[in-house]
Each structure stands twice: as C-alpha cells, then as structure tokens.
C-alpha cells in the first residue's frame, strides 16, 4: 500500500462532510408496535464515524437510459390491456437539504396493485394479480431534479403483525443521490388515507411533522383531463456543509 498509487487522485466530487442525520425525524429502529423490528434492530446505536467512501462517492446512473415506459406502470407490463385501478400521476422534486436540485439520480419505485397484491413470488394475499401490472418502475430525475411516474393508486393490504394490521396505500421509493451518504429508501402515502394513523410501520416515525412529509398531496394542477389524478411527493436528501473542494487534487 503506497501513497504513490494514489498520487494525482482527483478529489472525489462532493467530498465534504454531510450534515449529521437528524435521528429525531427518522423512524425508531426498535418498535414493539411493528413486530418485525424486534429481532431485526441492532441493540447498539449506530456508531458515528468520520469520512467514509459513502461521503466520497456513490453509484451514478446518468448513462442509464430508462426505457420509454420505465416510469409508466400502467403500460410497462401491459399484455393486451392496461392496469386496473385509479389512474394517477405521482411526481415531485428531489433536492438536498440546502435546496439544491439533485439531477440525473435514479429513482426506483415498487407497489402493490389496485387490490393490494404484489407481483412477487412470496406474496400470497387473497387479492388477485393484475395481468397488466407489475408494480415496478424507475426513472432518472431531470436536470432540475424533477421526476414523474404514471401508475395506479395501490390498494391497502393486511400484513402479519399480530392482530389486524393494514398498510395504507403506499408506494415504495428508492433514491440514490450524488453519493452513497444520500441514499434513501422510503414510502409515499396518500393524503387523507384514514389508515395512516393506524399503521404500525408509518408510525415508527414518532415526529408527526416528519411523517407528514411522507404524505403525497393531491395536486390538481398536474392532473390530466379525462385520464389521471395527480399527487405531489417531494424528496429531500442529506445536504452537505458549505465548504467543499471540488476538483482540487488531494495531497498536493
């Protein structure tokens, strides 16, 4: 191991430290109300650590050319028909905590169909599969950090939690950001859904204001006449401190 090996190593872009994650707005890890956490939550708190490779860099997908239907879940699995259910647009922006848009970042979504059933080998819920719906979509944000998906509103579904536990309608979101430190996997809920306050998973977030940021709001301005309602879901990834050293050479 020599430093010569690393000489002229360009400073990895966006290499400054990120704001510490505010754990008060994050879900608690261990929650007796959500049974699956009991054996799956580490008992040691996560260790604070200095700079890691997650701050220095992260996967980029700018070269990825999503197919024309990758963000159209009504059409991307169509086999002779269109997905059943309430047609919706879900759209918004991805920005960092400093309000800067995050362009060309990969968003992946997955969801149940209108009946609350996932197209997954392990989902055996009573509701039928929709032959025209997979529930899988992806897109890159544009240069202004915007994204949009066309889909159907997923149905609620019950899950094993001891007792009568139901998930509100939700869409799972995975977002990358510029470095791995910004990586986020979360869920978008729907404004006005009475199941949200009852859901053990949504309520692993104890701060009501933080939970509200996961609720997509009805956005009639983006609805498509005689086609689809629209919901808006904006995403904020971790921001970094102001001092950064883009394109300087390390060790010089």
């Amino acid at each position: 191991m020599t430093l010569e090996l690393l000489e002229g190593h360009p400073v990895h872009r966006l290499a400054s430290r990120y704001y510490d994650r505010d754990l008060r707005i994050q879900p608690v890890r261990h929650d007796p109300l959500y049974a699956s956490t009991l054996l799956r939550s580490p008992t040691h708190p996560p260790l604070a650590v200095g700079e890691t490779i997650a701050d220095l860099s992260g996967p980029v997908f700018g070269h990825l050319k999503p197919g024309p239907l990758d963000n159209d879940l009504i059409g991307n699995f169509a086999s002779g028909g269109l997905a059943l259910g309430e047609r919706i647009i879900i759209h918004g922006t991805v920005q960092d905590q400093n309000g800067r848009p995050v362009p060309e970042t990969l968003i992946e979504i997955w969801q149940a169909n209108a009946g609350g059933r996932y197209r997954h080998v392990r989902d055996g819920y009573l509701a039928p599969l929709d032959p025209n719906f997979s529930g899988c979509g992806r897109c890159l944000t544009d240069r202004d950090g915007r994204y949009t998906f066309k889909t159907i509103r997923p149905g609620p579904y019950p899950f094993k939690n001891g007792g009568c536990a139901w998930r509100p309608s939700h869409i799972h979101f995975s977002v990358f950001g510029a470095t791995f430190t910004q990586r986020l996997v979360t869920q978008a809920y729907f404004e006005g859904d009475p199941l949200i306050p009852l859901c053990p998973i949504a309520n692993t977030i104890k701060d009501p204001r933080a939970l509200r940021t996961l609720v997509a709001t009805l956005d009639m301005s983006a609805a498509i006449e005689f086609d689809a309602l629209a919901y808006r879901f904006d995403i904020v990834l971790r921001g970094r401190h102001a001092t950064f050293f883009e394109n300087r050479t390390e060790g010089v």
Partner: peptide, 11 residues
C-alpha cells in the same frame, strides 16, 4: 436548512 425525508422499511 430543509429537513431530510425520513426513511421507511423497504419491506
């Protein structure tokens, strides 16, 4: 500074 979007389980 905007608050970060909180995480949820991947399920």
């Amino acid at each position: 500074m905007l608050p970060e979007t909180p995480a949820q389980t991947a399920g």
